[in-house]
Design a protein around this nucleic acid. Structure first.
Lengths: 159, 159
DNA sequence: TACAAGTTTCATTTATTTTTGAAATCTTTA
DNA sequence: TAAAGATTTCAAAAATAAATGAAACTTGTA
């Protein structure tokens, strides 16, 4: 039934890969990376990089880079089993933890950066230019709204 | 000071364009589209498509497609002034309304679609395959969490 | 209705992103 | 420490996405 010996995938696994490819696409992440997460999500046991390459028919480079990205995202975990040369990888299944990355590592830095740029721009506009001042001011209120909303968002998906 | 006669942009306008290009990039939207929104955001008066092409040095095709997308997003509004051949465009300044689009037109359909696909997949897996059933089940709980969270998100950015 | 202004469409070009795979690097063990 | 195994890096190739601009289409005007 399951076919862990050969390199073929079950129908339900293919469907789930598709699903993740779609989701990851929304965030602008490459297909190969989505598929790596997907196959690990489906797997019963942690997998080796080599197995991932085989099952998905992707290159060593793709696997290496994809796994690195997924690791820094906290979406997969690298385990070093003593007495085994290769590292093993398993998926993070907690939605809350996955979202924590998106919020903390992606959204927050962008917000902070935006805030700095806005102050910078504002300080460069003469007070007489009320139109420009008004526009910047509106953007700053957007900024503040986002600032207040972010922490609540993680909460919404909590366990 | 402002330079609406020629095609040059003020420093603060360039900065704001950059800012929007960055934000739009996060959502996988093209640079030209971001710039169109940016220039309309900065403008004191509604603009004609032709003026947008000139100010941004983009082609008619880009302007047309970008404006169409922004219109369906509700991010810009097309106004037809009687006695004027060309349509005018102005930016939507309300953050809440902008987010409403992202949530309603993008996120919700994807969620609904995901839900359908999951049920479909589940129905195709034999009950004996407990591993697969378990994985699908977890995804369905993700689904439900997202479902509950979505409506709250729009709220957070309300006026 | 014919003409002209304005806009959209879409095949082609250009730019960007992703993937590959072989060489370089790092790691383990004999 | 040498040799083999595992992983990473990165230049080049392939795939994808965005922008262009001329032709087709639409709409208003004489």
């Amino acid at each position: 039934m399951t076919d862990s010996a050969t390199n073929t995938l079950d129908a339900w696994e293919l469907e789930i890969l598709d699903l993740f490819v779609g989701i990851f696409e929304t965030f602008g992440l490459p297909k190969s990376t989505a598929m790596i997460y997907g196959i690990l999500y489906c797997a019963e046991e942690p997998m080796l990089q080599e197995e991932i390459c085989q099952k998905l028919s992707i290159s060593t480079g793709s696997a290496s880079q994809g796994l690195k990205l997924l690791s820094t995202m906290g979406a997969v975990h690298k385990q070093n089993v003593p007495g085994q040369r290769q590292s093993s990888y398993k998926a993070e299944y907690s939605m809350r933890r996955l979202l924590a990355y998106v919020v903390d590592a992606q959204l927050r830095p962008k917000l902070r950066n935006g805030k700095e740029r806005l102050s910078q721009i504002q300080s460069e506009i003469p007070k007489e230019n009320t139109h420009a001042q008004q526009r910047i001011h509106t953007l700053m209120t957007w900024q503040k709204k986002a600032d207040r909303a972010l922490p609540v968002i993680s909460t919404l998906f909590g366990n």
